[in-house]
Amino acid sequence: MASPHSSPRGKAIEVEHLETQYGSRKVLKNVSLAVDDGEIMVVMGGSGSGKSTLMRAILGLQRPTAGTIRVLGEDIAGLGTRKMAALRRRFGVAFQGGALFSSMTVGDNIMLPLREHSDLDERTMEIMARIKLEVVNLAGFENLMPSELSGGMLKRAAFARAIIMDPKILFCDEPSAGLDPVVSSTIDDLILRLREAMDMTVVVVTHDLDSAFKIADRITILDEGRILFVGTPDEVRAQKNQRIQDLLNRRPPEEALDPEAYLRRLTGESPSGEPVS
């Protein structure tokens, strides 16, 4: 399928030979990845494969042990506090649980970046917040507290906060986690709509196959910290690789993998703990 975004473009994100570790355990191993301007890149993989870790590294929340990360042309390892803050103002991030501030109303949550980074007057900020709430279909909810919202509404409020500064890149961690299929599908539609309306680059991290195939221009498959494949949804479907087919058909891997993975399952560290057949 010729995606509407296949014309040659600049790179929004370039990750080269990235390695990260927790303590002595390597989580990402030699990960290289490029995200084009304006595309929706879905990073897919089982839980524990390192998707969130990859996103945290790109956001500069976690220092990699090796490799380089360039976002919007800037090498984030070399950025000082001020430059990093300036770069991050061009990101929008919707965290897995929403990460709305529980002590503020939904409206104040969404206005916070404006309050901190702009000189707009209160009235203008309120209008902008209402526009964004309208975009995510939450109009009229600005005076509620986050604890009064349902899971799907929380996610949408998090999107509204993420796009309040009109970011160049939108990151979403597990947008469909914890939602029923119908609500999860409305979130997918929201992501597609946002990209169309705001011409952003979108990076989505998910373990949800349906969601990935529905929204992705390209899919990156991450498996135990390594990149298995990068390509369009059709290319992914056509892949003969056994691991990819297992993943697509939701089959547990045939044989016990490497001893390390086996040990991890035994100690209950891997959340994808299907019984070994």
Binding site: R56, L59, L61, T81, M84, A85, A86, R88, R89, F91, V93, F95, Q96, G97, A99, L100, F101, S102, L112, P113, E116, H117
Partner: peptide, 14 residues
């Protein structure tokens, strides 16, 4: 725990 601190960081709010 709720990643609110991370959220502050990525909003460029120390």
């Amino acid at each position: 725990i709720n990643q609110e601190i991370d959220a502050l960081d990525v909003m460029g709010i120390n």
